[in-house]
């Protein structure tokens, strides 16, 4: 077992301890480290670019993942209909984006959503009589394009998880409810939603953690300007830029520590909010 402990130490424990240690040092990777107390945290927390990256990450996280919850449940609900034909075809095609790498997705979207008037996205806007958007350089253009690629790649994954949830609900529950005279909506509300809840919590947790770690999509989508422009800079990109472009490993480590705290807090908040689904009614009835 002892080699196992050693690997575990290297992989699991050492980075955590070393990151915490580095967060209190000033270090460019070469010269000796210098203890600076909480200065790194002060520098990061007073840097407007850091807060811009927090804002960007949250906006893109919301736009990219929240709609998936609703659309994913609808798709799973439809795919779970007994009489549905071509079920396998729909399942496979909707899941297919998940197997493409994030880099590939970002590159395809960088072409679909380019600044040119002739890009697919701008052409479609034109069909609706709207003006073209600078997808690669504008404040909302970049965010929407990146959110859409996140949505496109993950919707099938979430749908399949919801589908697994729906399939785990015994059919006789619905039959019994129908006999008792419950309407379709009541069935959805009192049978489907409560029993689907663990699966919703699971995807909410994954989505929150994933959204806060967003890195590959914006970096590859923006290419050359990834670390110089601020419109789509995420927290992890800010961290990466500090570490590997500016050789400021102390502030980068401080950012990593802050990020971990963010993830823990936001995941907890989201899980708390989601676990309220379908419960309010009962609480009200109990009073």
């Amino acid at each position: 077992m002892s080699p196992f402990f050693i690997i575990f130490f290297c992989v699991g424990l050492f980075p955590i301890l070393f990151s915490l240690y580095l967060a209190f040092q000033q270090w460019n990777g070469l010269s000796p480290m210098e203890f600076v107390g909480l200065d790194n945290f002060k520098i990061v927390l007073t840097d407007s670019l850091f807060w811009k990256s927090v804002y960007n990450t949250i906006i893109m996280g919301l736009l990219g993942t929240a709609p998936q919850l609703i659309v994913g449940i609808i798709l799973a609900f439809l795919l779970n209909q007994v009489f549905l034909r071509f079920k396998q075809f729909y399942r496979v095609t909707i899941f297919m984006p998940y197997i493409t790498s994030m880099v590939a997705v970002a590159l395809v979207f960088s072409v679909l959503f380019s600044n040119q008037d002739s890009s697919m996205a701008n052409y479609i806007l034109g069909l609706f009589g709207l003006d073209p958007i600078n997808w690669a350089t504008s404040e909302w253009g970049t965010k929407i394009a990146i959110s859409l690629m996140v949505f496109w790649r993950w919707i099938g994954y979430n749908t399949i998880i919801y589908l697994a949830g729906l399939q785990s609900i015994p059919r006789d529950l619905y039959e019994a409810a129908t006999i008792d005279g419950a309407s379709k909506f009541q069935q959805l509300r009192y049978i489907t939603m409560p029993l689907l809840k663990p699966f919703i919590l699971l995807t909410v947790f994954f989505s929150t953690v994933g959204a806060l770690q967003l890195f590959s999509e914006p970096t590859v989508f923006l290419g050359q300007s990834a670390f110089t422009r601020s419109e789509a800079m995420t927290i992890v990109m800010y961290l990466y830029r500090d570490a590997f472009r500016l050789q400021s490993f102390g502030t980068a480590s401080a950012t990593a520590v802050i990020l971990v705290i963010f993830i823990a807090v936001l995941a907890a908040i989201n899980l708390y909010l989601t676990s309220g689904i379908g419960r309010k009614k009962k609480r009200g009835a109990g009073k």
Partner: peptide, 20 residues
């Protein structure tokens, strides 16, 4: 402890692991 490392985001380990 192993399960806990599942929750730790890989970004926290990025810099130490790079130097390792």
């Amino acid at each position: 402890a192993i399960l806990l490392t599942m929750i730790i985001p890989p970004q926290l380990g990025l810099i130490p692991q790079y130097f390792l």
